[in-house]
Write a protein that binds this DNA or RNA. Sequence first.
DNA 1: GTCTATACCCTGATAGAC
DNA 2: GTCTATCAGGGTATAGAC
Lengths: 200, 200
Amino acid sequence: MKQSPTPRRTQAERTRASREKIIRSATETFAQKGFRGAKMADIAKAANLTEPGLLHHFPSKTHLLMEVLKERDRIDSERMRATLQQNGNHLLEASIELVEHNQTVPGLVQLFNLLLAESISADHPAHEFFIERYQREREHWVQAITQAQQNGEVRADISAETLAILTFAMMDGLQVQWLMEPEKIDMSELYRVMMEMLRA
Amino acid sequence: MKQSPTPRRTQAERTRASREKIIRSATETFAQKGFRGAKMADIAKAANLTEPGLLHHFPSKTHLLMEVLKERDRIDSERMRATLQQNGNHLLEASIELVEHNQTVPGLVQLFNLLLAESISADHPAHEFFIERYQREREHWVQAITQAQQNGEVRADISAETLAILTFAMMDGLQVQWLMEPEKIDMSELYRVMMEMLRA
DNA sequence: GTCTATACCCTGATAGAC
DNA sequence: GTCTATCAGGGTATAGAC
């Protein structure tokens, strides 16, 4: 009996497309309701699936969350890398561009903001993820700022480590006020003012 | 028949003491788990009560949350008022003292941080509360900073409104990093560095 | 790979005794 | 004012058919 040729590649592609669609839907839903507030049914519905259909691709809600976060991190790193290249490695300028970009994706900003706050509890599934992420980013920025200080672009009367922490704090804090009152708060303009204060 | 004198005052006091004890327990539990993550059973247990015993004092979880927030706001306003008086109305100095104080009450800082992030969703019970709170505080600070600019204490090349927003953003942002890594982040020292940048 | 059906737990809230 | 008992609803996850 002749077997019809199994469309192996096509099927794998379809699986990958399903996962991507689910991750997109999950990203939006987590952004609106946070991890604890988002229900699997919401995510399934947004992906045109039922709950068991969704759970066929990801064994649990926690697994799904972690995939969403990793995927976002991957995309954002890629964006930042490209912007830095276009900018001749000027971190301050590149970071302003990042804030401007964030202003076009409020859902994602809200996602990270809410998950970040939730994740401070040691028993949150993304607890380690966010601590490691901050440590990694901080190290990255300390290096870049040190170089900018040596180039005379950034004021050298404050340590690079301190400047890195202050910069992240400002980014995070501005996001909160912007999310609460988007028309009132011009996030990128305010961030720019902060960057001016850091210039040499 | 002679009725034994009803201990009216004593009973009222006992009721008030119960409410205060519940609010203390609820504050701690909300701080650790947020509004959505905190269960009424957790709060009841922390207050040495059962769930119905708890619900006898507060008709619903939402009511309890709002009472917790209002109570905290009342206490904090009172503290800030007193500190300002001791400081000759120097807002920058008083705000540094506030950050130092916050460093001694991580649970409360976490409570406001987590509820703030949750409350960005329009359907959160504390949504309006936090928006109004920011508007009120911002107005208050714009007035104070304007005066400090006229006195020559604060740089005048940036508008008071912008400085107020940046200051709140820095406070909020530092709290997040401090909560995540309390030993690594010296919140009040970092805040002090920011305040130095705002000096005339 | 996706569905229907359902098990099973958790949670907020109520009824009513004491 | 606090308890025991209980309900109704919603939530994640599983079983098993197609």
